[in-house]
């Protein structure tokens, strides 16, 4: 009974990880990975490792999604548009 939080955390992380591995589309996967990151941070805290949890939160909440989504945007841009006639870049 005392291990119940850890067990639930483990199940959540497993489910999120499996869902992330089974995602096909990069954008969907990025969102599921975000939830996986949260589940992992919770698991680390429930296992009494707050420093590791802080590292996971610091990396996985903003930095990783930003890098993934910027890469997706860069890769998607080519088929979608001609080179811009007025010389402007992407909406920043």
């Amino acid at each position: 009974m005392a291990e119940l939080p850890v067990l639930i955390g483990l199940l959540l992380a497993t489910a999120a990880g499996t869902a992330a591995a089974l995602s096909r589309e990069p954008v969907h996967q990025a969102l599921v990975l975000s939830v996986l990151g949260l589940a992992l941070a919770l698991l680390f805290t429930l296992l009494q490792a707050p420093d590791v949890a802080l590292s996971q939160l610091a990396v996985g909440t903003v930095l990783t999604p930003l890098m993934v989504l910027l890469s997706v945007r860069k890769v998607r841009r080519r088929p979608r548009e001609e080179s811009p006639a007025d010389g402007r870049g992407e909406e920043g």
Binding site: M67, S71, K74, R78, G89, E90, G92
Partner: peptide, 23 residues
């Protein structure tokens, strides 16, 4: 981290292929 993100942001938002070069 700032320098790292700057590379990604530049690539996604500022750098375009020169005219006439379509990948």
């Amino acid at each position: 981290a700032v320098v790292l993100l700057a590379q990604f942001l530049d690539q996604a938002l500022e750098l375009v292929p020169r005219d006439g070069e379509h990948r």
